[in-house]
Design a binder for these strands. Structure first.
Lengths: 149, 149
DNA sequence: AGCTCATATCTTAATATTGAGATAATCTTA
DNA sequence: TAAGATTATCTCAATATTAAGATATGAGCT
């Protein structure tokens, strides 16, 4: 393999990666809209549901988002009663976002449906192919993150 | 493998797919901003550069975007002198977007740099792994698109 | 304590994107 | 040919997101 082929493969990889992600995401977003949330709101809510309370800052790290947008999205979720802010006792600069009972009840209902939508979206790969894809994508994601200084 | 493991793998696949795409895209976007364009503008410009003039409608199909946004983005590119609208002689509802000389000269310069940025972003996989990933992602993307009725 | 630097959140204005629907041209088919 | 359906673009208001920087806290040092 020469340098030129390698070039082409890199771009090609980026294209098919983007496509696959767009279309699987299209399934996910369509599902989320049924719940009256936008994708960002859902992503934050699910993060809190699965990982517990988070400082706003860390939400931005886990879901790629600027700080201004985090504030905005958490405001929205707070208005809907799905999330509350809790001041951090050790560091008064820090606010935690915490899911409310209403938020938990909501995701208890919505999450299994959401999971089904994702299963449908990725049904084009069989179990072994999924396993392979996971391995390759994990490696790719980690290295791309690390080389993004 | 039972149904439950399969479930978990689907979600897991979606997560690593999203992550990989986010981080590779982060490289691409950072590169694009150096040129004074936003990612959508760049995507439209590159489409015209590589595939020639396109009806606005078809731009929306190739880059997932709503029609209102296509109008807006093509306006922006037109203001910057990188693109012009050309009416279609056969169907007067249709406008083509066409890249200008200035736009072509711009991408002659920018595209090789952009390609390098992508190469760096995906350098975590070797040639064989890229080949495998391309195969799996192509299959996944096509099936996700097809099942998104 | 006071100073400086780094960090976390928030504010605000500018920009980007969506969603609904208006407008106008083409196609279909009776 | 005329009516209705479809398609392509555009308009515009509402919403989402970014970018820059303001504010406030904490940590380390003297």
């Amino acid at each position: 393999m020469n340098a030129e082929n390698n070039r082409d493969e890199s771009l090609h990889l980026f294209i098919v990666l983007s496509r696959a992600c767009e279309w699987v995401t299209a399934h996910a977003h369509r599902d989320i809209r049924r719940y009256g949330l936008n994708p960002t709101e859902y992503a934050v809510l699910e993060l809190l549901y699965h990982k517990g309370s988070q400082p706003l800052q860390q939400i931005g790290g886990k879901i790629l988002m600027t700080s201004g947008n985090i504030t905005y999205v958490v405001d929205k979720l707070e208005q809907k009663g799905l999330v509350v802010r809790k001041p951090c006792p050790e560091d008064r600069r820090v606010s935690f976002a915490e899911i409310t009972e209403k938020g938990t009840a909501f995701l208890d209902e919505a999450f299994p449906q959401h999971r089904k939508a994702i299963e449908t979206a990725v049904a084009g790969l069989n179990a072994e192919e999924k396993r392979q894809a996971i391995g390759l994508l994990k490696k790719l994601g980690v290295s791309a993150q690390e080389s993004f200084k």
